[in-house]
């Protein structure tokens, strides 16, 4: 009797534990089935490489190239901001800050990482965009450049926090060995600490990329929303995420536009999945490498 009950508990937990697999599979199936009707009308190739996104024209055009290009553009710009700032901050916390300073800075950065994205989007709209419009004398401040900056600032605390974790995993003995043979602290940092934390730091960067591509509210509010292939950083663009968020309200349920937005979701899902698996793969190898060093 007792046995039976214990077994029942075990199975209940096991079944509930599989919820996350069910959701992940459910998301995949949903995206595929909902976008499938589109691909019966439009070949995958012209969906991915088509240069025009006019979903409400007659006949509509569903080329997502401008949207993907916009996402890549804005994400790349954000990386130029968050990678140096994030990693620089991590190095400061790890190398220069004393114990007390670090025990203040690290939690502070982690707390700031939780500011909601809509607040960043709002800040970008009311403060950053007018500022950029004035400084660069543009017709509008809502551009890919503005999006990159706001997105970059937003991702910085996350990158800093993960990179600092990676740096603090480097065994003390590595550092001591380097200092003992006469290297100064900077040389030790550049030649020993950073290379041994390298895969951890690249994990931080990859997760930053994946987050920036998938981020919705900031780019929706700040990048202006023109579905054209970006030629310069100083013009409005419409990345994949904001296309979905902005157009779902006007798309007819079950229509081709609706299906096309799910298809964009599928592309987005595949891209982020790729980066997440890449990050997982790198951090696994990293654990093995440092584990052997200890």
């Amino acid at each position: 009797m007792h046995r039976v009950r214990e077994n029942i508990y075990k199975w209940v937990f096991a079944i509930m534990a599989f919820a996350s697999i069910i959701f992940l599979v459910g998301i995949t199936i949903t995206l595929i089935t909902q976008s499938f009707p589109l691909f019966r009308e439009i070949p995958v190739k012209s969906f991915l490489l088509g240069k025009a996104w006019y979903p409400t024209y007659d006949p509509p055009e569903f080329g997502t190239f401008p949207l993907v290009a916009a996402s890549v553009f804005v994400t790349f710009g954000a990386l130029l901001v968050c990678v140096p700032l994030g990693i620089g901050s991590a190095l400061y916390m790890n190398e220069i800050a004393g114990y007390r300073q670090k025990s203040l800075l690290k939690p502070l950065i982690e707390i700031l990482a939780s500011i909601p994205s809509v607040v960043y989007g709002f800040f970008g709209m009311v403060i950053v965009a007018p500022f950029i419009q004035k400084v660069f004398n543009l017709p509008t401040g809502l551009t890919a450049f503005t999006g990159s900056i706001v997105l970059g600032i937003m991702a910085t605390p996350t990158v800093a926090s993960i990179a600092e974790d990676a740096l603090s995993f480097v065994p003390k003995s590595f550092r001591e060995a380097s200092l003992a043979v006469g290297a100064n602290r900077w040389q030790t940092l550049i030649k020993v600490v950073i290379p041994s934390a390298g895969s951890g730091i690249s994990t931080a960067v990859i997760l930053g990329i994946s987050r920036a591509i998938g981020e919705t509210m900031t780019v929706l509010m700040v990048t202006g929303g023109a579905a054209i292939i970006p030629k310069s950083f100083f013009q409005p663009v419409r990345p994949m995420t904001s296309t979905i968020a902005a157009e779902m309200g006007e798309a007819v349920f079950g229509g081709l536009h609706y299906n096309a937005l799910f298809a964009i979701g599928l592309v987005l899902f595949i891209i982020t999945l790729f980066f997440n698996i890449l990050a997982e793969f790198i951090s696994n190898r990293y654990r093995l490498k440092l584990g052997a060093g200890r």
Binding site: I27, L31, S210, G214, I244, L268, L273
Partner: peptide, 12 residues
């Protein structure tokens, strides 16, 4: 699942 973009959760 942790890495899925939030807008994709919205679609789901």
């Amino acid at each position: 699942l942790a890495g899925v973009p939030s807008v994709v959760f919205g679609l789901f």
